[in-house]
């Protein structure tokens, strides 16, 4: 068939194909180079001491233990708050809401939220949580800011999986005399676990990678604290620490070590999100 093509068409086909191959190859190479470079520069700087010590000005050593703890605290606090809110909102939209206008308003709001850049979240979080609610610059204020940011993600993934719960399950439960709340509790919610887990994983990824929104709300301190004390005090997460060490202190070795850790975490998060999606897809098929 190809032999009959005019030279112009053959050139078009070949040219477009070459451009497609080149673009795809470039993106693949870019991803590999980025990962390789960051790991290559970062991993030699990761030592046990580096991971488990607080920075000390006296000994002139840098450790990222407090930053690791802060990241974990922010993740836990944010997820604990955002999961129930996001899941309830999604359940409302797909199970309760009968007013079409209200649904479209809520969905429009969620879309708007997911388009707002993190620097604006940081600013409003600072004004509202830190100043208006007098929480000062604390991890809790940062976590609450991130709750608003991640609400649309959890809502969307939960909603997607609610759509896959067969209508007949609900009808069956109603037919047996269950009330609405019982149907939701026993039939609908267990059916959307995969969406909740996916939303959770995606949110963890976003929280770990967030920096602009946390810079003004959670601060930049490197102090080791317990969970509740930590939430009440200011602290830098890994990403914020990376920014401070690279931009303000010129400690590129430290910055690359943190970058390598973040890169590994991103890899793990992406792989687990894919694994969850796959395993639930297989379960559905059976």
């Amino acid at each position: 068939m190809n032999k009959k093509l005019s030279p112009g068409r053959r050139a078009y086909t070949a040219g477009m194909k070459a451009l497609m191959y080149a673009s795809t190859a470039a993106i693949g190479a870019l991803v590999l180079l980025l990962i390789g470079y960051v790991l290559y520069r970062g991993i030699p700087n990761i030592t046990w001491k580096f991971l488990t010590m607080a920075p000390s000005i006296l000994n002139d050593t840098i450790g990222i233990w407090p930053d690791i703890l802060n990241s974990i605290y922010v993740v836990i606090a944010t997820i604990i708050i955002v999961l129930p809110l996001g899941v309830c909102a999604a359940v409302y939209l797909s199970e309760y809401a009968s007013n079409k206008r209200l649904v479209s308003i809520i969905e429009y709001a969620a879309e708007t939220l997911s388009g707002i850049p993190s620097i604006i979240y940081g600013l409003v979080g600072m004004l509202f949580f830190c100043e208006f609610l007098k929480m000062q610059t604390t991890l809790m204020a940062g976590a609450l800011t991130l709750v608003i940011m991640n609400l649309p993600t959890v809502m969307r993934t939960t909603q997607e999986s609610l759509k896959t719960v067969p209508q007949s399950y609900r009808e069956g439960a109603f037919g047996l005399g269950a009330g609405k709340w019982r149907v939701i509790r026993t039939v609908v919610l267990p059916g959307c676990v995969d969406g909740v887990i996916t939303g959770c994983i995606l949110s963890v990824g976003r929280i770990l990678g967030e920096s602009a929104a946390l810079l003004f709300t959670a601060g930049i301190a490197h102090v080791v604290n317990g969970f509740f004390m930590g939430l009440k005090s200011s602290g830098a997460t890994l990403t914020v620490a990376l920014y401070i060490y690279a931009k303000e202190r010129g400690e590129f070795g430290v910055a690359f070590a943190i970058a390598a850790i973040l890169m590994l975490l991103t890899l793990i998060i992406n792989l687990s999100a894919e694994a969850v999606a796959r395993s639930f897809k297989n379960k559905r098929r059976i």
Binding site: V38, G205, G209, S211, A246, K247, L262, M263, T266
Partner: peptide, 25 residues
């Protein structure tokens, strides 16, 4: 499948890491 995971990975890398590599490379 490989390219799609690569693209999700690209989306997941924190912006400060892009900044750091940009700054030094």
């Amino acid at each position: 499948a490989v390219m799609q995971s690569a693209v999700s990975l690209l989306a997941g890398i924190p912006s400060v890491v892009y900044g750091l590599v940009g700054m030094l490379v």
